[in-house]
């Protein structure tokens, strides 16, 4: 078996509004459109993903919150209707997905080996969270690629950002080892919004784009600053600023997906491709891609592997 590799990572936020705006057959709610620039951004990302031809998509979602460790979907087929608890008027989506259980188990085992508490979710009636489903629909509406679903352990909120993100860093490295060991060609999806200040009331017509704009100017400026650094490939600076960004822009990257993804990729200092940016009910969302194949990093696995795994944006906190 050839050694597995990570082909690319995408920042792939999950506002259900994007599915609502698109009107796919799986969603019950119907719209007149809306949030087009973000949906067109996802169109470009879909095309890029298609060219990568991955075996598996791994998604880390902030809306499967777990308290006792990091959990992995572990049932081969999961189906049901996903209704967004906050926006049930917009998102009532019938899904069916297949899970790469072998890879999920490998991730779970590697993470446990690395000292994290981990669990496999084996209950066939489990309702997959809407963050996972929105991200997966937006990046691959055909649902023809198996997935690995990873929960967001609440450590960043329960303890503090740095300790929490240290765990996500460990989880990312474990994920990479599992991908390499199982021979998968994998794409990582960080299901995160950037600045997360939002409006508290929805317009009468949710897709009325004359009402859509950044809720908070400071949040918008933070988003632009971070995106600009990402576009330039200044990954180290991005992660130096991340805790401050999280505090000052209430950024959803606090939940860990973004750190997990970059840790798994070895924090590459390569320019991210911005497919598009837009706000949803005031929050800042960027669809971005770090294509390791184009950057020549996916092929350099053997050489890069060890070096990548030694890097860490959030070293283990020293305890008294």
């Amino acid at each position: 078996m050839a050694q597995g590799r990570i082909l690319a990572g995408f920042l792939a936020p999950h506002p259900p509004h994007l599915v609502y705006g698109e009107n796919p057959p799986q969603n019950e709610a119907r719209s007149e459109g809306g949030w087009e620039p973000l949906r067109w951004a996802y169109e470009r990302a879909r095309k890029s993903l298609d060219e990568l031809k991955p075996d598996v998509l791994l998604v880390h979602s902030p809306h499967w919150i777990t308290q006792l460790g990091h959990h992995f979907l572990g049932v081969r087929t999961l189906r049901g209707k996903s209704v967004d608890p906050i926006f049930p008027n917009l998102f009532r989506y019938n899904f069916e997905l297949s899970v790469d259980v072998e890879l999920a188990e490998a991730c779970c085992a590697e993470a446990r080996e690395a000292g994290l508490v981990t669990r496999m979710m084996r209950n066939p009636n489990f309702r997959v969270d809407y963050g996972t489903i929105v991200t997966l629909h937006m990046i691959r509406p055909q649902w023809d690629i198996p997935i690995v679903g990873i929960s967001a352990n609440n450590t960043p909120y329960y303890l503090n950002t740095k300790e929490g993100l240290h765990e996500m860093d460990v989880l990312g490295k474990a994920t990479r080892r599992a991908i390499e060991r199982t021979g998968r060609r994998a794409v990582l999806l960080a299901s995160n919004t950037l600045s997360h200040w939002h409006f508290h009331e929805e317009p009468a017509v949710p897709e009325d784009m004359s009402k859509e704009h950044p809720q908070n100017y400071e949040g918008y400026k933070w988003d632009m600053r971070m995106i600009e650094l990402m576009r330039r490939g200044q990954t180290r600076e991005v992660f130096r600023l991340l805790p401050q960004f999280i505090d000052e822009a209430f950024a959803e990257v606090k939940s860990g997906a973004f750190t997990w993804m970059f840790s798994a990729m070895g924090y590459p200092e390569i320019p991210g491709e911005l497919h598009g940016y837009g706000t949803v009910i005031g929050t800042g969302n960027a669809v971005m891609e770090w294509n390791l194949v184009k950057a020549g990093l996916a092929e350099a696995e053997q050489v890069l592997g060890a070096a990548a795994l030694s890097q860490s944006a959030f070293p283990a906190p020293s305890r008294g």
Binding site: T66, R122, N123, N125, R127, D129
Partner: peptide, 13 residues
């Protein structure tokens, strides 16, 4: 319906 807790799914529905 049937709900499954997102943390304690292992103990049933």
């Amino acid at each position: 319906g049937v709900h499954v807790d997102e943390n304690w799914y292992e103990y049933g529905d």
